[in-house]
Design a protein around this nucleic acid. Structure first.
Length: 166
DNA sequence: TATTCCTGTCCTG
DNA sequence: CAGGACAGGAATA
């Protein structure tokens, strides 16, 4: 993670959204109730990296909020996912889940060819920095419970309900 | 339903 | 390198 990170803050129906990008693409999407908490989380993810509020990031912000409000809209801005090899494999499977559908952690693990890595899959979901764009909210527990969500289970539920109505 | 055990991967010291 | 944390799941009572 080198160079500075440019970010923009905005609002959507689910609260505050922060979108951050570096020269490779969007490197973080955070949701919450207050901007300060999101900035703090961002700094924790990229320690020592300079953060700058920048007009340039507003394009990405608009695209992300658009995706939140209308999950069917397509999103093709460059991403900088980061993560380990294993995490990237998980995230690739997640991106193949269409809006309105869900998978269990076990199904994701199986599709990866690592059926015993269920718990590791959950951890990889939790490590996803690109909320909504990498749809970790579409992964639920086998017993039907929503399980957890980095930005609050209420937001996970709201996202899923919205996708079902499409 | 609650408890217990078994997991794979990542993080920290 | 060892130990602990986990957004799970299955077996058990």
């Amino acid at each position: 993670m080198n160079g500075e990170i440019r970010f923009a803050l905005g609002e959507c129906s689910l609260g505050i959204v922060l979108v951050a990008q570096n020269r490779h693409g969007i490197c973080a999407i955070l949701m919450g109730d207050e901007p300060d908490a999101l900035l703090e989380a961002l700094h924790r993810w990229f320690p020592g990296v300079k953060m700058v509020a920048h007009e340039e990031a507003k394009t990405a912000l608009t695209a992300v909020t658009g995706l939140i409000e209308n999950p069917r809209s397509n999103f093709n801005l460059p991403l900088d996912r980061g993560g380990t090899v294993f995490q990237r494999r998980v995230w690739r499977v997640l991106q193949d889940i269409p809006p309105g559908e869900t998978r269990t952690y076990a199904e994701v693990a199986e599709r990866m060819g690592a059926p015993n890595s269920v718990r590791a899959v959950a951890q990889a979901c939790a490590a996803n920095r690109l909320a909504v764009v990498i749809p970790c909210h579409r992964v639920v527990r086998k017993d039907g419970a929503l399980s957890g969500y980095r930005w609050g289970v209420a937001r996970k539920r709201a996202l899923l309900e919205r996708e079902v109505w499409l």
